[in-house]
Computed example of a mutant assay.
Amino acid sequence: MYNSVIFDMDGVLIDSENFYFERRMKYFDMINVEPASRNMSDYVGKTEESTWEQLVQDESLRVALKKDYAIFREDNQIDLQQALRIEVPEVMQKLKKRDKKIAIASSSKRKDVEEMVQQCGLTSYIDYLISGEELRESKPHPEIYEISAKKLGGKAIAVEDSFVGIESAKAAGLYTVALKQEYDVDQSRADWQIDSLLKLLAMV
């Protein structure tokens, strides 16, 4: 029996990957610079740093564009409450009623994860939160899940959407559930695929 659940954020708790990808492409179209890739699957599940390394190969140009994009991003924010998957509050509420612990292990910046939790009213459900920017290694390295599982104690499962996230959780030795996505993403390494987070309640 599992006593805790570790959720990824983007693509799992919030339906955000399409928004982030389209926002990046809109920015590059606006400045008339062609990114190194327009394949969404090249970016799903990655840290901001690795995303930018994929977007722009030239380091000096990358540094300059990242600063400019930060301004563009502030003017084009995602609506987190709208992006939150509708079943998330119900799933978390029922998990807590069963005395299960809940963590978020995200490659996003900590302030972005904390902002999502606060704006979406999830603070009271979260026992632990960790961001990839706090670690030496990012997904698919298992560090983020190893630390999360140790903090929660007991037996945990991971809920992911991306190939790199699934690899990270599997490498940490966790049973890994993949939430199916509308876009093409390799989830073949997951132990179980679900089309709704509500299905987690059948096993936790």
Rank of each mutant, 00 (worst) to 15 (best):
K100F: 00
R136L: 12
S106A: 15
S131H: 13
S124V: 00
G153T: 07
Y128A: 04
T123L: 05
A103D: 06
G121A: 04
S138Y: 11
S106P: 06
Q93C: 04
Y125A: 06
L95K: 01
I130A: 09
Q119Y: 01
V159H: 04
Y128R: 06
T123E: 15
S148R: 09
K101I: 01
I144C: 10
L129N: 05
H141T: 05
K151V: 05
A149T: 04
K111Q: 12
K151Q: 14
I157L: 15
A149Y: 03
E137Q: 15
I130M: 07
K109F: 12
R136M: 14
S148D: 10
S148G: 09
G154T: 03
E134S: 14
V159L: 02
A149W: 02
S108E: 08
E114N: 12
S148I: 05
E114T: 09
D99I: 00
K96F: 02
V91K: 01
K155T: 08
K94I: 05
S106R: 10
V113N: 08
K109A: 12
Y128G: 05
E137F: 15
I126C: 03
L152C: 06
K111N: 12
I147N: 07
K151E: 13
R98I: 00
A149C: 02
E115I: 04
A149E: 03
G132F: 11
K97H: 06
Q93G: 03
S131R: 12
E133D: 15
E114I: 02
S107H: 10
Y125F: 12
P142T: 14
R110Q: 14
A156C: 09
K94Y: 04
Y125N: 06
G121Y: 03
I157Q: 03
K94M: 08
I104A: 01
D99Q: 12
L122K: 03
K96M: 01
G154R: 07
K97R: 09
M92K: 01
L129C: 13
R110F: 14
E143Q: 14
A105S: 15
K100I: 00
T123R: 08
A103P: 00
E134D: 15
Y128D: 05
R136V: 14
P142I: 09
R136H: 13
R110N: 11
S131N: 14
E143R: 13
M116E: 03
D99A: 08
V113D: 08
T123I: 07
Q119D: 07
Q118F: 11
E114W: 08
K151S: 13
Y128C: 07
A103S: 10
Y145K: 08
K155I: 06
K109G: 09
S106F: 10
E146L: 15
A158S: 08
L152W: 09
K111L: 09
R110M: 15
V117D: 03
V117E: 04
S131L: 11
